[in-house]
Design a binder for these strands. Structure first.
Lengths: 148, 148
DNA sequence: CGATTTTACCGGGGAAAACCCGGCTGGATC
DNA sequence: GATCCAGCCGGGTTTTCCCCGGTAAAATCG
C-alpha cells in the first residue's frame, strides 16, 4: 500500500488530469512508454486508490446554474446527521467540506437563480447561522495536485 | 448556441460525470441509444461547451497532500494581477473563486504539511488579510450539476 | 559471487470500441 | 402531400483495448 510515485507516474497523472479520456496508447506516446506498460501503471494507480475515478467536467452556466455561491455554516448543536442528510439530498450542494474554525462547514452551492439560492440557504439555515458569498468567477481554470 | 438539454442529454451527463471513461457504446447501452447516436450527442455536448473536459480524480492524501485548507482573502488595493500571478504559479492552490462579501477570494489549498501550508499562506498574506480553515474531510463524495 | 526471484517493459493477436459513411424515419415547413 | 431536416441506425474500416508470454535489468538470497 506504500506509494512511491516516480516521475513517469506524475507525468501520467498530469496527462490524465488534463484529459481523462486520452487513449492509453496515446498516453503512452506522451510519456514515452509502450501501451502495455502504460496500461499497467494506470491500472496500478487506480487499484492503489491514487486515481479514484474519472469525471466529465460540465459548464455550470450552460446547464442553467447561473448562480454559484460559497456558503459557510456554523452548525448549532452536535447532532450533524440531519444536516448531512439534507446536504446529500439537495443536488444544488456540489461540495461540502467540514473545517476548523468558527464556520464548521463550507459548501459550494449551484442554483439557477437568486430565488432558488435563497430557498437552499433557507433550508441550510435551519442547522445554524449561514454566511453566503456569491461567486463572480473562477480565477483559476482548475487543477489537481501536481508533482514534487 | 442555444442549449436545450433533454432527458437523454442529462442521462449522458450523469453517466459521464460518474465515470468519464465509460466507452461510448456502453454509455449508449445505459441510456438506451445506439453507439452512433450516443457519439453524436456527446460530440455536440463537447462542441457546445456543456462538457468542458474530462479529468482523472486524484486522491490528495495518497499523493502526499496531507493538509487541505480553505483560505479566504480580503485583497487590499485594486490591482489584482500580481495576486492572480501568484495563485497561478503556486501549484498548491487548487481552486480560486472570486466572491462577493468581505473576503474577495476563497481559495482551496493543498499542502504536504502545516509548515508547507504556512509558507503558502504567508505568500498569500502579502496581498491582504487571510483567514485559513483546515479541512477535516469531505462530507459529500462530490457531484456535478444534475438534471432539472 | 553467481543463481533465483522480482519488477518493468515490450510485442503480438483476438476482441472490442471508435470512426466515418450512407440510409431510414418521423415530425415540421410550405 | 412533397420537401426538408434532425436524430437515429447499421455496416465496414481503423484504432484501441486486453490478455498473453517473453526479455532484460535490478533486487534478493544462498
Amino acid at each position: 500500500m506504500a506509494e512511491s510515485l516516480d516521475a513517469t507516474d506524475w507525468a501520467i497523472l498530469a496527462e490524465l488530469q488534463a484529459d481523462g479520456r486520452v487513449p492509453l496508447t496515446e498516453l503512452g506516446r506522451r510519456v514515452n512508454l509502450g501501451a502495455s506498460a502504460t496500461t499497467e501503471r494506470v491500472k496500478r494507480l487506480e487499484a492503489s486508490g491514487v486515481i479514484t475515478g474519472y469525471r466529465a467536467v460540465v459548464d455550470l452556466e450552460r446547464v442553467g446554474c447561473a448562480v454559484l455561491a460559497v456558503v459557510r455554516l456554523k452548525h448549532a448543536g452536535s447532532r450533524h446527521e440531519p444536516f448531512h442528510r439534507v446536504v446529500r439530498r439537495r443536488a444544488e450542494v456540489l461540495e461540502c467540506l467540514r473545517t476548523t474554525g468558527e464556520d464548521c462547514y463550507v459548501l459550494k452551492v449551484a442554483a439557477t437563480s437568486m430565488a432558488h439560492l435563497e430557498r437552499v440557504v433557507d433550508e441550510l439555515s435551519f442547522f445554524g447561522d449561514t454566511n453566503t458569498n456569491i461567486v463572480y468567477g473562477q480565477t483559476l481554470p482548475y487543477r489537481g495536485p501536481q508533482g514534487p
